[in-house]
């Protein structure tokens, strides 16, 4: 009896750590587009970057429950860091990526202490404020950032000294996709770990989390810092692959859009950001082709409808659908031998 339960317990816990067929397909298709949709690489590159940005927001909103309206602060900082480095002659993309991640993580770490306290509204205002302050700095420090004209003269070297960026965006897309995939694997690993479980518990009920002995603040600081680093990398990817940075990367609509993207795809299961990015970009493409100037109206309408229809319910449905596809693992978990339990 009790060994049965033990097997069940292990299987249930470990199952979440295993990749489903749907997930593998998702990434295979993504990789396949590198060969099959060459004329779309520019927009695909954009999608991947937005997806990574939304993924980083999911880490703090979906897994730690922090409402942020200023996530663009980290995205923008990453973009400027990578852009400025490249302009000033440090052309190696990976170096720029690392620097952007560190800069954004530092900002995330420092500002995380500001969002530990207060209501949702206070958090919202503080995050928004941080992004605005950064936007002002970028605007004023035009000697460094190019101000309102944008940061020009970014010249990227080849990735790993091997792959030159091309005008069709193929290298760019491959690069962004690879980076995003690696970061995704890491995030996925984190959310099924005990640490990830503790984050979910904090989102659900911080008071109880403390009563279980979880150092709530430390966990939140850690995840906020991590999410900031992710957002910074997304920004750096944008700067490197488009070779241009403007004040737009720090604008309010960036923060609002990324939240919208995440909400479209669904909060709290990591794929939401990526799926949302695809839907968002396709929508944007379709609507702007039809009514170029006013696509914002329709995006707003979609947002209103999503909320009125019950966001949680929709997300739950998407998740169930997703589990139907992705949850099907190669073998049913019960029949798996014990050693395959992804022990590291």
């Amino acid at each position: 009896m009790s060994t049965n339960i033990a097997d069940h317990v292990r299987a249930t816990l470990v199952r979440r750590g295993r990749w489903g067929i749907g997930e593998i397909l998702f990434w295979l298709i993504a990789a396949a587009t590198l060969y099959f949709l060459p004329e779309r690489h520019l927009i695909l590159n954009e999608i991947v970057i937005i997806g990574l940005f939304a993924l980083s927001l999911d880490l703090i909103l979906g897994y730690a429950g922090i409402v942020s309206l200023g996530h663009a602060a980290f995205f923008g900082l990453g973009a400027y860091t990578a852009g400025i480095l490249a302009r000033d002659g440090i052309a190696d993309p990976l170096l720029g990526l690392g620097a952007a991640a560190i800069a954004a993580a530092l900002l995330g770490f420092v500002t995380s202490f500001l969002v530990l306290r207060g209501s949702d509204l206070t958090k919202l205002m503080v995050t928004l404020g941080v992004a605005l302050v950064l936007g002002e700095i970028a605007n004023q420090a035009s000697w460094l950032t190019g101000g309102a004209d944008g940061l020009q003269g970014i010249a990227m070297g080849p990735i790993l000294g091997l792959f030159e960026f091309d005008i069709f965006g193929t290298t760019a897309y491959g690069y962004s996709l690879t980076v995003t995939f690696l970061l995704f694997i890491l995030a996925r690993r984190i959310v099924v770990s005990p640490y990830g479980l503790s984050l979910r518990s904090i989102r659900d009920n911080p008071l109880k989390a403390r009563a279980v002995g979880i150092p709530v603040n430390r966990r939140l600081v850690a995840v906020y810092t991590l999410a900031a680093a992710y957002a910074g990398i997304a920004g750096a990817l944008l700067a490197q692959t488009t070779q241009f940075v403007s004040l737009d990367v720090l604008a309010f609509h960036r923060s609002a859009d990324v939240m919208l993207v995440l909400v479209i795809g669904g909060v709290g299961y990591l794929y939401g950001g990526l799926i949302g990015a695809i839907v968002f970009k396709v929508l944007q493409d379709v609507i702007s082709a039809w009514t170029p100037q006013y696509w914002q109206f329709w995006i707003g309408l979609i947002l209103v409808i999503i909320v009125l229809a019950g966001r949680e319910r929709l997300t739950e449905r998407v998740r169930v659908l997703w589990k139907g596809v992705a949850g099907r693992t190669a073998k049913s978990p019960e029949t798996l031998p014990k050693t395959s339990a992804r022990e590291v």
């Binding site: 816990l13 750590g17 690993r189 099924v192 770990s193 005990p194 990830g196 503790s198 992804r342 590291v344």
Partner: peptide, 14 residues
């Protein structure tokens, strides 16, 4: 309690 909360790499239940 067993200190796994810092453990972000291992899958819960391994």
């Amino acid at each position: 309690r067993t200190g796994g909360g810092h453990d972000w790499w291992r899958v819960t239940g391994s």
